[in-house]
Each structure stands twice: as structure tokens, then as C-alpha cells.
Amino acid sequence: MERTTLDLWVGIFVVGGIAALVMLAMKVGNLGTYNVSEAYQVHAYFSNIGGLKPKASIKSAGVLVGRVTDISLDMERYEARVTMSLDKRYQFPKDTAAKILTSGLLGEQYIGFDVGGDEAMLKNGDELKMTQSAVVLEDLIGKFIYSKAEGSTN
């Protein structure tokens, strides 16, 4: 086949387009930072998850260690069952506690790990026993008003 400058331009166009896609995937998206294949699953029950959503981040000491993969309501306990996928590189003791936290006042909710002191490490399919639910702003305000009202009657 004869090579023409037209082919060169079309080549530049196609390569540029694919490069843009790769750039979007790696630099803008999360394909470069988060790999599902090297992960293990654990789950935990929360009485209230607030605004937690699938794909929310899981952080330990502020470092991203995994993501929430699934949220469902357990029909025996009437609690939220949150499945998490954690990076294989990070191992946590069995008595690690999971807390639902908020980044900033109005930011996204995420799960923070408080690392325990157990010798045994979490394995695939384990449950995190100690959890702390999300702080619901309405409850907080309600409590505050209630205590104020109580205080003022005395």
C-alpha cells in the first residue's frame, strides 16, 4: 500500500483520540489507582449508614485502602450490611473498628478504620464487629434542642 500524508493525519487523529481516552482513564478516572483483582472482601453491619454510597472510599489514617462495593439491608437484624473491598497490600487486625465519617462539613461520607491490636489479621469474608454509625445531622440538632429545652425548665 502506498503511504500518503492523508494516512499520516488520520493516524495522528486516531492515536490522539486513543491517547485522550487513556489519559481520561488513568489520570482523570480511577483506573490507574484502584485495581479490583488484588483485593479481599470484608463486611460490617451499621445501624445507620447516613449518606454512604457504593464506591465510597475506605481510609485508614487518611490513606485510601479500599472501596465500598455493596450496601444492603439485612432483614434479620434490620441493619445495613456494607461490603467492602480492601487492597491486598493493606492487612488489618481482626478487631479493627469501622466508622462512617464525613469529609468536611458537607462533604462525601466515607469509612474510616481505627486499627486494633489483635494478632490475627482480617481475611476474605470476615466481619468487622465494631462499627460506629453515621452522625445524622437531624438527630444531632434534635438532641441539642432537647437538652436546651430540658435545661431551660430547671
Partner: peptide, 14 residues
């Protein structure tokens, strides 16, 4: 060409 152009648009926009 359309998906390639849109990808370039987004990448340049970022």
C-alpha cells in the same frame, strides 16, 4: 471519529 473527538474534547478541557 465522534468518540475520539469527544475524548479529546474532555481531555483538553480538563
Amino acid at each position: 471519529s465522534m468518540p475520539l473527538l469527544a475524548a479529546m474534547f474532555s481531555a483538553v478541557g480538563v
